[in-house]
Amino acid sequence: MNIFRLAGDMTHLLSILVLLLKIYATKSCSGISRKTQELYAIVFMARYLDLFTDFISVYNTFMKLIFIASSLAIVWCMRFHPVVRRSYDRELDTFRYFFLVGASFALALVWHDKFTLQEVFWAFSIYLEAVAILPQLVLLQRSGNVDNLTGQYVFFLGAYRAFYILNWIYRYMTEPRFTRWIAGISGVVQTALYADFFYYYFISWKNNSKLKLPA
């Protein structure tokens, strides 16, 4: 474990806590894409198939459980919670994400570390996570003004993978034969997708103005 990876995991956890706070405090999920939340639930369930077979550390197992449980809880809230579900922007959250799932799985069948069920699903989860934010970014562009907690949620979610890129660079330089091409290349693509959001987030922070993404 290095400082970059710890910072990445903590930033990821923070993004989830901010999202839970927004939903709990405002009893609303307006501005949140349910499709992105569902994609993340699939990402975590596909990535952590080794949850019960490979014990790495208490920290690793604990965080995997947190990620799976929180993503499922958020999807449940947005679908079934009597108050929260009413504020879901159903007519704005229309990204056809089936293609993202299909393309990611097809790529995982072609490019993986090893052709086993666990490794193909692991690669699938890596590719899917890289594009999982797209429905959320499209929703932000359509929904005009973005509330602070939603903006912070997306910001931390984008920042965590940037920390992971620093972690991979650090490990590549300090550990012999360390390579994570699948995660590394996907991580760069994932972080690049946030580029314009980061730009407008920085502008809104600098001008102390409301975050607004151009349509």
Partner: peptide, 10 residues
Amino acid sequence: LNNILYHDEL
């Protein structure tokens, strides 16, 4: 376990 297939990261 060799390096690649040991997913020690989240």
